[in-house]
């Protein structure tokens, strides 16, 4: 009798979670869009479209990074876009979990960006973007989840690599691609920044899931070997700042409206990289 009660309670909780929250519990059991499939689809999109290239008429410029807005609520997002419109960074890059994965939230998010934002915006895939068949909507709205952005300034070029870590792993195909990009292209650029969603390290208590250690070794090694300057992630919801070798690993506070310390990351792209976390309130 007690067992039946527990089973019923669990089923009810899962059902409630699936209909009332921004969480898709089916992801505990299986994923309809494994990371290797998403990577292949991103590469197909990249092959059919022009690569992302930004031009800057100075050698120094700024980039803004933010993560974890978790739409529905939009107040902090609109505040951030207002700041971006005033400050005019060269680009605004989102490091995942900007929305719930539901089609309505994708529509709302895209609509706000089109109406309000005056700077180029780039997106990476977080786990929440994938809920509720979210990859279908991500593709429809943003095209690709794995790509590079080449930034051409008056005297040099910088490289931003956007990765898809929404499943907690890059997968072997994306890892090979990343390795090839760094081996073949890194030395053509002044600075290199990698953007993805899942934070690497657990230097303080965290309930978020990082990539498995065996994958972390490989990524840390790649970044050290190829002198990646900065790795920007989200996911942890609290500011993190770790340094290993010449690579600084940063995670800004979540942009979600419920977070009283919501912040974005401002990066000064000059000969020496500079950065600061800036709170919205």
């Amino acid at each position: 009798m007690a067992n039946k009660l527990y089973i019923m309670l669990t089923a009810i909780l899962l059902l409630l979670a699936s209909v009332s929250c921004d969480v898709d519990p089916t992801g505990l059991l299986y994923s309809t869009d494994p990371v290797n499939s998403r990577f292949s689809e991103s590469m197909e999109w990249n092959a059919a479209h022009m690569p992302f290239v930004l031009h800057c008429d100075a050698d120094n410029y700024r980039l803004m990074f933010a993560a974890d807005a978790h739409l529905g609520d939009t107040a902090n997002l609109i505040t951030l876009l207002g700041i971006a419109n005033d400050d005019l960074p060269l680009a605004l890059v989102f490091a995942g979990d900007m929305l719930s994965g539901k089609e309505a939230d994708y529509d709302k998010f895209s609509s706000i960006l089109q109406r309000v934002c005056m700077v180029p915006v780039f997106h990476s895939v977080g786990n929440h973007e994938l809920y509720f068949d979210g990859w279908t909507h991500f593709k429809k709205n943003f095209g690709t989840g794995v790509y590079t952005i080449r930034i051409e300034t008056t005297e040099s070029c910088d490289l931003i690599i956007v990765l898809d870590s929404g499943s907690g792993t890059l997968g072997n195909l994306q890892l090979d691609w990343l390795s090839n990009v760094l081996q073949q292209q890194r030395n053509q650029y002044r600075h290199c920044i990698v953007v993805h969603h899942v934070n690497f390290f657990r230097t303080r208590f965290s309930t978020s899931t990082s990539p498995l250690p065996v994958e972390l070794y490989e990524l840390m090694s790649l970044f050290a070997e190829h002198n990646v300057n900065m790795v920007v992630s989200g996911h942890n919801h609290k500011r993190m700042e770790d340094v290993l070798g010449n690579t600084v690993y940063l995670c800004p506070d979540a942009m979600a409206d419920y977070n009283s310390k919501a912040a974005y990351l401002l990066v000064e792209m000059k000969d020496e990289l500079g950065y600061s976390f800036i709170e919205l309130n």
Binding site: V23, D24, P25, G27, L28, L29, Y30, S31, P34, V35, N127, L130, Y131, G166, S167, G168, T169, G171, V198, T207, S208, T209, P211, L212, V214, E215, H235
Partner: peptide
């Protein structure tokens, strides 16, 4: 069996 992403509620085979 190694898998990634369980606590992200987005499981993916790893190894």
């Amino acid at each position: 069996y190694q898998r990634a992403g369980l606590f992200n509620i987005r499981v993916n085979y790893f190894g």
